[in-house]
Amino acid sequence: MDNIKDIEPFLDTIGAVEGSAFSFDENAIKAEYAKQHKRRSNLVIKVLSIFGILFATFAFFGFLAILGIYESELGMLLLGSILIVLSLLLNIKFDTLIVDTFGASIYVLGIALVSFGLISFELHEDLTTFLIITIALCSLFVVQNYILSFISILIIASGFLVFIFSKDLFELLHFYTAFYALALAYCSFNEPQFFTSGLKVSKIYGPLRIGLIFSLLFGLVAVGNYRLAPMSQNLNWISSLVHISIILYLVGPITKTLGVDSKNTKIWIYTLTCLTLLPTLFAPSISGALLIVLLSFRVNHKTGLGIGIVALVYFVIQYYYDLNLTLLVKSILLFSSGVIFVLFYLFLIKKAPTNEKV
């Protein structure tokens, strides 16, 4: 629902289906919708706030360096712990953008100081990574703040990547991308359950979804760049197979939305989908970006859709650039893929319902 005026007819429709047993507090629903709409409208400000958090954190790092806090391992550990607890208390007590930004800034700073403190105590790097992931996971359950939850999800994903890169276990990146692709798909397919599972769960759904998108992108960037993660390209099908399987599963709801009932038409749709996805079998970055686009389109997540489109364009260009083939072969591959996409587009335009109300 893009407009608060759409709530009343929507509730009337539900009441007609459920019967007289259905009851609701319309004023409370409208108030909560207005609150959530205000949070969504501030998304750009929140994104800018994240960059502000980074600059503020770096500046405070410089201030701590002047004070000589880095010379004391225990001092870093204690100060970091205090900042983390303080950020959580601030976000529990207050719900304003300024406090959110300040709380997230000291949260990031606290995580960094705790990490440096643990490393300075010569604690094993795996244990340090595990403790940081645990702190971020606990923060995620304690505070349902948008920015803080988003940062916590990214910290958890970064912890997994640190473990993979520190051990040179680059093949595990395929399982990393598969896990986050499945997690993102689960969130998208079960969006109604998140919003009806209580206030805490509904609050965490927004940052969870965008956090999973960025976490998946981290893995796709690593998998798609052999210079960053030197590993055998023969195993790329592992990640792609998961992405392609989810995309094929999405075809069913999409054909239902288009009003396609003919069995032959569905066969053609699945055939064209397979032909479109076949070239991406050894290019998991492309199939992963395409998955983000389709999942975001399915739930009308405009931010995710924009991120997915930009990522798709980037990964296609990168894949084309990295191909160890002649320019003629590259041109033939791009031409063939383009023809398939155009045919798929024309087919969908022809089969799309013409009397659909927007």
Score class of each variant (00 low, 15 high):
residue 319 Y to A: 14
residue 260 V to P: 08
residue 330 K to Q: 05
residue 110 G to Y: 05
residue 110 G to H: 07
residue 260 V to D: 02
residue 138 C to S: 11
residue 88 L to S: 11
residue 45 I to Q: 12
residue 31 A to W: 02
residue 268 W to I: 08
residue 318 Q to N: 13
residue 321 Y to F: 14
residue 135 I to K: 01
residue 240 S to I: 00
residue 226 Y to D: 15
residue 12 D to Y: 09
residue 8 E to I: 13
residue 15 G to Q: 15
residue 275 L to K: 02
residue 239 S to G: 06
residue 302 K to W: 09
residue 142 V to S: 05
residue 267 I to N: 06
residue 319 Y to H: 12
residue 63 F to S: 08
residue 96 T to Q: 07
residue 333 L to Y: 13
residue 158 S to R: 09
residue 46 K to R: 15
residue 108 V to I: 11
residue 161 L to S: 00
residue 319 Y to L: 05
residue 121 F to P: 13
residue 300 N to R: 07
residue 344 F to L: 12
residue 76 M to V: 05
residue 252 G to R: 15
residue 25 D to N: 01
residue 227 R to C: 09
residue 332 I to H: 05
residue 254 I to G: 10
residue 255 T to N: 14
residue 137 L to N: 08
residue 323 L to G: 02
residue 203 K to R: 12
residue 96 T to E: 09
residue 84 I to V: 05
residue 86 L to G: 07
residue 143 V to P: 03
residue 12 D to Q: 14
residue 217 L to W: 03
residue 282 F to K: 08
residue 155 I to K: 02
residue 220 L to S: 02
residue 184 L to R: 01
residue 346 L to D: 05
residue 211 G to M: 06
residue 89 L to M: 14
residue 335 F to N: 14
residue 204 I to F: 09
residue 336 S to Y: 15
residue 180 Y to S: 04
residue 330 K to M: 06
residue 229 A to H: 07
residue 149 S to P: 01
residue 202 S to E: 08
residue 303 T to F: 10
residue 113 L to F: 06
residue 236 N to V: 02
residue 258 L to C: 09
residue 18 E to K: 15
residue 224 G to T: 00
residue 171 E to D: 13
residue 96 T to R: 07
residue 258 L to S: 08
residue 48 L to A: 07
residue 262 S to Y: 03
residue 285 S to H: 01
residue 128 T to H: 11
residue 78 L to F: 09
residue 166 S to K: 15
residue 324 N to L: 11
residue 97 L to Q: 14
residue 127 L to N: 12
residue 81 S to D: 05
residue 6 D to T: 04
residue 251 V to K: 03
residue 111 I to G: 02
residue 16 A to T: 10
residue 252 G to H: 14
residue 235 L to R: 11
residue 210 I to W: 00
residue 97 L to H: 07
residue 219 G to Q: 04
residue 157 A to C: 05
residue 85 V to F: 05
residue 215 S to M: 05
residue 21 A to I: 10
residue 340 I to S: 01
residue 273 T to F: 11
residue 278 L to K: 06
residue 212 L to R: 07
residue 283 A to H: 03
residue 170 F to N: 00
